[in-house]
Computed example of a mutant assay.
Amino acid sequence: MKPEVYIDADACPVRDEVFRVAERLGLIVHVVSNGARGIRLPEVDWVKRVIVSEGADIADDWIAEHIAEHDVCVTADIPLASRCLAKGARALKHNGTVWTTDNIGGALAGRAVAEHLRSTGATTRGPAPMQGSDKSRFLSALETELQAAIRAKESPPVSLWRPIEW
C-alpha cells in the first residue's frame, strides 16, 4: 500500500508540481478546499477533489481526520502540519520547508506571538512571496518525503524484541 498525498488547496501554489510527482509515483492525491475558488484539477482517477463547507479550519479538520501514518500533507498552515505530524504523517510547505517534530514547536510558538502582536494592533510581516527557487526546493523536498514515505509504508515494522534463550 502506498502513501497518499493531501493538499490544503485553497492557497497552494504548487498543486501542478504535486500532480506531476504523484503521477510518476502512482499515488492518490486528495485536493481539499472549501470550494470558494474554482480550482482546476486534472481529470484523472487518482486526483480526488474534496470540497468541504466554508468556515475556519474545516478543510484542515477534514485532512487531519483522514490522513494516516506515512501519508504526506502539503500545507502552509502550521497547526495543520502539527496535527499531521501527531498522526505519524509527513508535512511540507509549498516553499520546500519540511515540518518535523524538531521544528514545529518553534513555528507554533512564533505563530502564537504574531497572533498576539496583531491582536494588540501591531503589524506583522506575512509570508514571503514565492520565489523561483522555492519551487525547485519544494520539488526536491516533496520527492524526498514521498520516497521516504513509500519506503516506510511498504516495509514491515521491525521488532527489536527477541525471546531470551536459556
Rank of each mutant, 00 (worst) to 15 (best):
K2N: 15
E4D: 09
V5A: 02
Y6T: 04
D8P: 01
D8S: 01
D10I: 02
A11S: 13
A11M: 06
C12L: 02
V14E: 00
D16N: 12
D16V: 05
V18L: 01
A22E: 07
R24G: 12
G26V: 02
I28T: 14
I28V: 14
H30V: 00
V31G: 00
N34K: 04
I39M: 00
I39H: 00
R40A: 02
R40S: 00
V44H: 04
D45R: 15
W46M: 08
K48C: 03
K48H: 09
I51N: 01
V52C: 02
S53G: 15
S53Q: 12
G55R: 00
D60I: 08
D61N: 15
D61F: 15
A64S: 08
H70N: 15
D71I: 03
C73F: 09
A76I: 02
I78C: 07
I78L: 07
L80E: 06
R83K: 15
R83P: 06
A86V: 10
G88V: 07
A89M: 06
H94P: 13
T97Y: 09
D102H: 14
N103C: 07
G106T: 13
L108E: 13
A109D: 14
A109Q: 14
G110L: 05
S119N: 07
G121T: 04
P127G: 04
Q131P: 06
R137S: 09
F138A: 03
F138S: 02
L142P: 03
E145F: 06
L146F: 11
L146N: 08
L146A: 08
Q147G: 10
I150N: 10
A152N: 08
K153Y: 11
P156V: 11
P156W: 11
S159F: 05
S159V: 07
S159Q: 07
W161I: 10
W161L: 14
I164K: 13
